[in-house]
Nucleic acid binder design. Structure first.
Lengths: 114, 114
DNA sequence: AACCATGTTCGACGAACATCGAAATAGATA
DNA sequence: TATCTATTTCGATGTTCGTCGAACATGGTT
């Protein structure tokens, strides 16, 4: 018995009804994670692999942020060939907290525009 | 020279244009602070002294939360006789991030109602 | 002058967080 | 099979956070 790792955990996502507002707000209160969310929201129906986000952190750090986003219910990730594809849970968020995501993204757009 | 304290600092508030979205989201991502905001929002034009909020933390802890809320731009505090009166910066928030506060408060109402 | 009420600052604590580098996993390719 | 690519997990580090109790500041009351 040498290794007791848990590689490739089964990617748990909260159900729509279980999405917690405080977790969502906390997840959005970070520039790197906001960039991820905003990038996904920019292209409707957008999916993209982890490596393609315009963020400036180490891969392991980004992986951590994906976990936070996933567990908060903001994004969904599915396994694919050699990639992990990320999508925004737009509809689920809209069902759980109507208007929240759009309003926050608009607010972010404002603050970027000075 | 014995004491180098700074009692009763002059209560700095960010200008409306300087309100930072990440600070706001972070401030709202805490149950105690959310309770403060929600309590103020519940009564239109509501003002109330610090001691009258339905929260369950030590006075010093609450004071800390007020500081976070004040510095994020969510609340305004003014000195009065022996009290410090707190108000929600509803109009300023609306100007800076339209719809954000209302949407978040509605979302919170939802999550409380299960 | 003592006391009380209100709310703050200070200093400490453990928990959570953002970050990284190294090692590991899994599949595709050479 | 060895290697490359994509991404995660692990372990460590330094920082921020939420919390508290103790002490302090201010002003009204006794």
């Amino acid at each position: 018995m040498s290794r007791t790792r848990n590689p490739r955990a089964p990617l748990a996502h909260p159900a729509t009804a279980e999405i917690d507002l405080f977790h969502v707000l906390h997840a959005l209160a970070d520039p790197t994670r906001m960039t991820v969310v905003r990038t996904l929201a920019a292209e409707p129906g957008g999916e993209r692999p982890c490596g393609t986000f315009p963020v400036d952190v180490a891969p392991s750090t980004l992986s951590h942020h994906f976990k936070v986003l996933r567990e908060s219910g903001l994004i969904r990730q599915r396994e694919e060939v050699n990639r992990r594809i990320t999508t925004l849970r737009t509809a689920d968020l809209e069902e759980r907290f109507p208007g929240l995501l759009a309003t926050v993204l608009t607010a972010y757009g404002r603050s970027v525009a000075e």
